[in-house]
Design a protein around this nucleic acid. Sequence first.
RNA 1: GGCGCUUUCGUCUAGCGGCUAGGACACAUGCCUCUCACGCAUGGAACACGGGUUCGAUUCCCGUAGGCGCUACCA
Length: 522
Amino acid sequence: MNSPKVRVRFAPSPTGPLHIGGVRTALYNYLFARQHGGELIFRIEDTDSARFVPGAEEYILEAFRWLGIKFDEGVSFGGEYGPYRQSERRDIYKQYVQQLLDAGRAYIAFDTPEELTAKREQVSNFQYDASTRNQMRNSLTLGKEETDRLVAEGHPYVVRFLIEPGEDVHVNDIIRGDVCINSSILDDKVLWKSADQLPTYHLANIVDDHLMKVTHVIRGEEWLPSAPLHVLLYRAFGWADTMPRFAHLPLLLKPDGKGKLSKRDGDRLGFPVFPLEWHNPVTGEVSSGYRESGYLPEAVINFLALLGWNPGGDQELLSMEELIQKFNLEKCSKNGARFDYVKGQWFNREYLLQRPAAAWAPDFVRLLAAQGIDTTEERAAEVVEMMKMKVIEYTTSEGPKKRNVSFVSDLWPLCRFFFVAPTAFNREDKFVKKNWKETTASEMQQLRDVLSTIDDFSVEGQKAVVDPWVEQSGLKPWNAWRVCLVGEGQGPDMYALAAFLGKEEVLRRMDFAIKTLGSCTV
RNA sequence: GGCGCUUUCGUCUAGCGGCUAGGACACAUGCCUCUCACGCAUGGAACACGGGUUCGAUUCCCGUAGGCGCUACCA
């Protein structure tokens, strides 16, 4: 018996920007589908008309395009199992709800939301189930005639799933093994909503997965408690033999404190929780995205892939191809993973370093332009090459910290002096203080005179002349020279910096420093 | 409250009855050095607790405690 072709789906609801946890779920589905030569479906679960947010669907699609997660079928991709937007499948669901009604596996209930709220307030732990349904207003208590009459009169109603109590329902989860819960603790879930005349997630989900021939449901752990309900639905429809296999992924948790990762954590700690920048169409609020923050899609993918799964072994830098090859649902961890965004920055650094400096240049040029600096990509690439191994200081809620250059945008604060000459010197600066003594001005004047004789101002050209002079004079001009050209204790190798600036600019900066700092002791 | 899932360094994790419990991020120190770094080397750092099972438990079972989730006419 050969198993059917693997078909998985990622089915977000368009209620806003895609959360990074959702991105990981989609990624795992993608890796699984690719590894098995299967198909990945993109379905839109927009059965909650109240929470619909315009633009969310396009946002999600663009996010996956950027990340390199490709779908084979679904909204905007086509396919033979459409439509793939649930709001366009109303008639299909209606038909299946009727099937359940006819089979006596579901019933009609007239209780209004207000009545239910009141009931919940008056009876603690109230649950609409076998123990309470006979006290409510539904087709079971009202009888067929009365029900038909109320429906005909246009009274709003919902359809509820009739759950038989006292049965142990088993879910065989790929990640968690056998999960068993008793049907008595399940409530008679609403399958069809009166409010928007659409099914709930539970019904739509089962019908679609069945009709779309989905073989594996890979989703977040928040769905685990309702998985038994889904199993019961498959059975009620008579689809138990083709029921997909389930895999419930661990959740992404806050970097610190308690609870699951939320947008607020990103704002508080300074990292994005969305793949792309999001502009809230109602509030106008802007949330940062990984793309706009300077992350490389490969880095985001690699980082996310290893949050909750690990191929074993010591290799952590993995390409999409390697991930596809090594991915294994059974090796997913069972417990929630704290979102270690600092490690995410490290991944980005690794991927940034892997590419040639020239590949950073366009972004860097744009960044410089925003600072009013006009330069070429070649020049920018030279600077990148000299500075990519440096460390940047940044501020956090716990005070200043340092980290390696991890983004192109880290470069500007480190590279200003390449493009802007010092206009003043901070005599209180430790480095300046230490390296500018009363004799320094005259030493710098000597160095200046030596430099002015050089025609070939390349690193090699300078070396050929300056090294012997250093040797013979016994001077150590480096730090003072750095003060002249940079203004502080920063920057690359002095010859490299001087070569970049060019002879004229170097001499100009030295003249200015000698004049400004003079022979005074600082 | 009820139900379910879960528990190895600060964090992500490897481990699938016998190991000096491994790696990575982060952190610290040293070397290198023309500044800051990179790099290299080194270091601190974990099996939640209590019972079993077993010759032997981080590993299997049961409790306890913590964490997480669900408990809507939301997904």
